[in-house]
Amino acid sequence: MFSGREVEWDASNRIWSWEKNIVYKGKCKDTGEDVAVKQIPYDSSKGKFEGIHPNLIREVTILRRLSPHQYIVQFHNTFCVNDNKRPLWNIVFEYLSCTLKQLIKQKLDPSNVKRLIYQILSGVAHCHSHSVIHRNLNSESILFEENSRRIKIAGFGLSRSCSIPFGVEEKFLKSYSPGVEAADISYQPPEFLLLSENYSLSSDMWSVGCIFAEMARGDVLFEANSCSVSQLSEIFSVLGTPTEADWAGVTSYIGWEEELEALDYNFTSKDLTLEALKAKVPALDVDGMDLLSQMLTYNPSERITAKKALDHAYFKNLDKTEL
């Protein structure tokens, strides 16, 4: 267990930053072990005082619940320091030097894609079995440990625990917290983009599908657009415009705009959709395509669950002893 006194970090060694949160590379003074220190500054805007930041409470609570696990980033401790008479909170994690995005840039062969997506699904299944929706899965919130060749899911800053231990796959939970719009737009499921109030564990599975495709093709599946309507039309251009038959209620969401309907992406059959997706991800075999299309299903309640995905035929020839 680490504590504030045992960790030192160098402010110039910034690994990552998002809004006001910054992650530094640090060192444990006793063991010399590298650590990542995420700082959550106290927001003193307009002299308002809200106590401990809700995101900090949620993130630490969730990490306490999920960690340790082989596919979840190891959480060490949280401590508070005094920064110009203001509390500055720190969360200490294990340090991993490589993100999945960097790994994808080096090109992955099909067997590695299979192994890594299996690990990601195992990690996501672990979160989901603990009723935690990650909400910001992308190739930068998944880290890679080079020694063990394992992925570790990180970036739980936007996560949400839904405190129901079973039956959640079929059920939606009302949106609880703002901030989800800060998640990487390329990986956002259509229900987020349509500003649906409901999201569930299956929302993460869309993001996993995007990551799966990204690993197989070596590049982001859906390029990031500046607004949700153009992001949706990007998705529709590959998967076709969803109809009420695919997803009941889709056209009545707040985010549904007339111009989306006017787009000429009305694929008449499922085969055509598969073909368009196949053109984007040519490296995947038949089983892989089937799994991917089940992750990128419009209707959230018909999307494959992480647990079911692990049993998919795509993984039947995977050596599970070498994960």
Binding site: I52, R64, R65, S163, I164, P165, F166, K171
Partner: peptide, 23 residues
Amino acid sequence: ELAVLATLEWRLDSITPFPFIDY
């Protein structure tokens, strides 16, 4: 707040019966 967090060891997600009732 800090004292409560430390005493509860930051485990604030106790399961309430409400989602079960809904379920």
